[in-house]
Every structure is written in C-alpha cells, then in structure tokens.
Amino acid sequence: MIINISLFAGLADRIGTSSLEFNCEVAELNTDLLKQLLSEAYPDAASLIAVSFVAVNQEYAAGASPITEKDEVALIPPVSGGEPVSGSRRHESEDGLYAITDEELSVDAVTAKVITADHGATLTFTGTTREMTGDRRTVHLEYEAYIPMALSKLRQIGSEIGEKWPGTRCAITHRIGLVGIAEASVIIAVSSPHRAGCYEASRYAIERLKQIVPIWKKESWEDGTEWKGHGLGPWDPSAPGKLS
C-alpha cells in the first residue's frame, strides 16, 4: 500500500522532503510498523523517527492504531523547527476564537474576542521573541505548523478550559513564518467571572499548547541555527491535561 505522509521540522530536513509518498509492502499497517519501515528506509533519520508521534486523521495515534491508504498521516517530531513561509496565510476556527497566521499579531484584537459583560476578569498572555539567551544573540525565530491539526488542538484546549473552569472564554492566535526580536509569536486571551479562574486558565492554556499543538520553531542566531525542544519535560502530546 502507498501512504502519503506529512513531515515537519527537523524530520523533514533529515529526510529531505515535507511530503512523502511511502510504499509499504505489507498487507496490514499500524503506527509502530510504519515507524519501523521508515527507520529502515531512512537510517539517518531513524533516531528522530523513533521518538516521533504518528498522527492519523489529525489525532495522535497509539502504537497499535491501524493505518489505511485513505488516512491522512503525519509524523510529529518532538523538537521544534521551521521553514520560511511565502505569501500571506491566515487560518481560523469557525467561531473565530482560534487562528494561525503569518501576519503580525494584535493584542487588542485577540483580547476583544473574549471580553463579555458577564465576566469581571480578562487576562492576556503574549509570548515574544527574546533576543539574548545567556550570551547568545537571537536574530529571529521561524515557526511552522501542521495547520489543520494545530487548529483542532487549539479548539481542544478551549474545550478543556471550559470544562475545568465553567464559563471561562478563551481565544488563541499563533504566528507562523519569521518572527523578529520583541515581536509576538502567540497571544492567549482568557476571560472569566472571577480573577482566580482567569489566572489558572491562562497558565493552563500556554502549557497545554506546548504539550499538544503541532507548531514548531527554529531559532536563528548570529552564528547559526538550532532546533529547540519542548520545555515541559518528557514530551507526550497524548497525555491528558492536568490542573496546575
């Protein structure tokens, strides 16, 4: 069977393409077997394939999950990465609360999505590009995303927040492409009836975003570039969210 696989970040770099048409000479295929076959076909990328997650139809799939030729398959590496984006791109959820764009972000625009007369607290978190990391100077960051799945996972975060803090409203916009020094890469706005829930939900949103949303970054310094990993310990995007 022939499986079409989307690749991202460092994995796309090592294999040399972001879209792979892979011939699997087996009668039945699952996610573990696919990773094994890919590792055999691309030994230089085997170590990264081994720690990557497989997404099937925009959901993280367990090792025994079956795969057919009709499925949308992506390999999600546990490190950040990026590629330049050409042309303006903006993708939004149907309700407009969640968006991925290569345009500059507006704190006011995202915050306005969650303000309501019934809520007494509104909090906005803005993540920006830091220039200095120790004694190393960052020139810019580059972001890329598995866009349809990323939007789905942003909506999932909003749903989880609604369950954990009933009545809380959330909006998230994340940028892709080049992001310069001091420019915003992500804006998370949360509103709720009371401030305690607002603070908790905002922190939950950014930590959960880093855990499950397939968005990658590559940090470019004056003397080169480096893939950056996730900052929340062992990377397990299939893990359920927890209260802080």
Rank of each mutant, 00 (worst) to 15 (best):
I2E: 13
F8K: 08
G10S: 15
L11Y: 04
D13C: 05
I15G: 01
L20I: 06
L20R: 02
C24L: 11
C24S: 10
E25N: 11
V26F: 15
L29D: 05
L29T: 03
N30A: 00
D32M: 08
Q36G: 03
L38P: 00
P43A: 08
P43Q: 08
L48G: 03
I49F: 04
A50V: 13
V51I: 15
V56L: 07
Q58C: 13
A62M: 14
G63W: 04
P66C: 08
K70F: 15
K70Y: 14
V73T: 06
V73E: 02
L75P: 03
L75V: 14
I76S: 02
P78C: 14
S80N: 10
G81T: 02
E83S: 09
S86W: 08
G87W: 02
R89Q: 06
E94N: 04
E94I: 05
G96F: 00
I100P: 00
T101G: 06
T101C: 06
E103H: 07
S106N: 07
V107D: 12
V107W: 14
K113Y: 03
I115H: 15
T116H: 15
A117M: 13
T122W: 14
T126Y: 13
G127W: 03
E131Y: 14
G134N: 09
E142G: 09
A145Q: 02
Y146C: 12
Q156V: 04
S159H: 09
G162A: 02
W165D: 05
W165K: 01
W165R: 01
C170F: 09
C170H: 11
L178E: 07
V179S: 08
A182H: 14
S185R: 05
V186H: 04
P193G: 10
R195Q: 07
R195Y: 03
A196R: 10
G197C: 11
Y199D: 08
A201D: 01
R203F: 12
Y204H: 05
Y204F: 12
Y204G: 01
Y204V: 02
A205Q: 11
A205L: 08
I206Y: 10
I206W: 11
R208G: 01
R208Q: 06
L209H: 06
I212H: 00
V213P: 01
I215V: 09
I215H: 00
S220I: 12
E226M: 10
W227P: 04
H230S: 08
H230W: 11
L232A: 09
G233M: 07
W235L: 10
W235Q: 08
S238Q: 15
G241K: 09
L243G: 13
S244Q: 12
